[in-house]
Design a protein around this nucleic acid. Sequence first.
DNA 1: AATCCATCGGACATGCTGTCCGAGATATTG
DNA 2: CAATATCTCGGACAGCATGTCCGATGGATT
Lengths: 205, 205
Amino acid sequence: MTRNTPDSLKEVIRDFRRDQVVDVARRLFGDRGSTDVSMDEIAAEAGVARSTVYVYFANRDELLRACLSGLHTQLLEAIAETWERDADPAHRLERLIGEMLAIVDDNPAFFRLALVTQGTVSQGAEAVGAELALIALDIARLIRDLFVQGVADGLFAGRDPDRATSLIGQQVYGAMSIRAAEPLPESRTAAAAETCAFILRGLGT
Amino acid sequence: MTRNTPDSLKEVIRDFRRDQVVDVARRLFGDRGSTDVSMDEIAAEAGVARSTVYVYFANRDELLRACLSGLHTQLLEAIAETWERDADPAHRLERLIGEMLAIVDDNPAFFRLALVTQGTVSQGAEAVGAELALIALDIARLIRDLFVQGVADGLFAGRDPDRATSLIGQQVYGAMSIRAAEPLPESRTAAAAETCAFILRGLGT
DNA sequence: AATCCATCGGACATGCTGTCCGAGATATTG
DNA sequence: CAATATCTCGGACAGCATGTCCGATGGATT
């Protein structure tokens, strides 16, 4: 048992330390565009001993998972912020796409990495895959709600919401992936508008 | 210099041996849904010594590249076969999408792997990325031609072909990626028809 | 002053990659 | 048959990374 420090404070400290390492790792992964960074290097860059990293993360995969988890919250926060501000489905869709693309632009290399890791490329990335699946689920839910509302508003033609969600999701997913791979992507707002218009035409009344 | 065997024959033999190993590797990668298979294992499964594998492939990455290269030719052959058979752009598009999805269905795990590797997840996967980029370029060219022809036929609204290609590519890319991740994808022809119809509406006149 | 605790730094076992080389098998050629 | 070229094998080896472990250190608490 801890003598003096209450457990809650201990957890705060722990989280702080973890974040410290995660930030460094994410930067290195992103810079290099690859998870191929040794734990030695991460530890050195973070200014801690390698063994200390293992105090906070059971292994490499858990560290990677923590990096992606940050992406998740970052995305959800960005969307939530603008979600309530505009009730019009068309605008919401455009905003949603814009925010997603913003995440990509924020760190293309790391995003590419995120997509990549989903497919389980390196050893035991199931945990990472699960993390990504959560994000995808959240987004899919948002898109589905948006579509249903759009149908009610007469913006979209009435069809199976799940199929529509799938089509929209495909387009957005593709747009993000391709943007992440592009060396010099076009203007984000233009790209978002274009993609949004395409979807509206494709599913419109 | 070779005494008896002509160089061309030597190359045939070499290619045959290479294919032998590539087939095994592709199967193992696919089965496991990960490139995390040791060279030992691949060699053992192929029934050759590990050192022999290194006679035919300089390193792991080259082996991986060879695996993806097979995917490339497989895809191009499948498309070429049906490409000339139908001149109508709408049908061509549906065929194209159908063929792409067929590739995915053929070995979802390996295709996921291919997508994944593109992003350079493991050490020195630039070569692999280049291989994938070639495929993407080929497909993009096909799509672009298709679009231009479609505009001439009055099927598509006239707009910047590059942007249109990008939008179509995004949709197809997304459809493939998501299908590869789906445990139980819907009927391939239905999916292809749906995606094609969506694109036609989105870009139609 | 005594004690706790996070961190350090390094040793260690394990596993994989890529290199190298001698031994043996096989087929070709004179 | 004998000589030779060529392929493959199997194992040794160095290098590097991961993950575990533990004694030493130094700062903070009581």
